[in-house]
Write a protein that binds this DNA or RNA. Sequence first.
DNA 1: TTGCGTGCAAAGGTTTTGCATGGCA
DNA 2: TGCCATGCAAAACCTTTGCACGCAA
Lengths: 140, 140
Amino acid sequence: MNRNGSYKTKQQSAILGFLMENKDNHVTVNDISDYLEQEGNHVGVTTIYRHLDKLLEQGLVRKYTVDGTTSACFQYANTGEECHRHFHLKCEKCGKLIHLTCSHINEMCGHIFDEHGFRVDLYRTVFYGICRECSEREEK
Amino acid sequence: MNRNGSYKTKQQSAILGFLMENKDNHVTVNDISDYLEQEGNHVGVTTIYRHLDKLLEQGLVRKYTVDGTTSACFQYANTGEECHRHFHLKCEKCGKLIHLTCSHINEMCGHIFDEHGFRVDLYRTVFYGICRECSEREEK
DNA sequence: TTGCGTGCAAAGGTTTTGCATGGCA
DNA sequence: TGCCATGCAAAACCTTTGCACGCAA
């Protein structure tokens, strides 16, 4: 980090710190802004966008958009393999976004690639459906 | 169509017509607006957004966000029942929509339901990724 | 001191909402 | 006639850009 003449600043480490704390979830620029504000640590959104752009270039975060949302989602990119198995379930009833780690998914993506030549991008893919709670609520 | 007290209008059929003509590609609100304008058939963007919302609810179009673009993409969706049985791959490079029937996917959905209580709606779910052709093109 | 970092304000773009008018049935 | 549909304008958002000032090294 901090290559070719860039400075270390409080804002930078605050943003990166929040991203790392939430490495299991994606966050929006608003999430970051609100959190820092709440911490009594105001950082302008401009600065947040600019840091995210840099982190993106360095490959330290991933950016994606989830269907049905308007703003971009960012997530700290851990280098572990698990993140390739991390996928998203979106409940169409309550809107809840579920983060799930499951080896079956990985297996299936491998199959799709081997058999059909299509490389699935799990970061971008969201499974729509009905979550357990909403299913149970419906049955009554 | 035209259930519960909705009217048929020129704008409606113009929009749907354009979507159907371009069912192999995704289009943006701007594409629709520009095309209709060019045809001497002005339709306000508000109207386009409202129709797309309705069509989305009825499952007649799909909505995507493709990385690197700012505006949402829409694509006419086949209404055939087969679409409930197979699943969809969307190439992020060329925009192609691939319909695939594969037992692995059903197996995996069964697993997600059994293990995680989440009932996946294959009709609404789209797998994002890169298709074989675009992969091969990239390698060069 | 030097030059990048910051943040406000403003601009640019997409999507939504309010409201008066138009048009289908 | 009774509603829904339409479209303009304006608002609401998200994101980027310009510019003066702040701050790390």
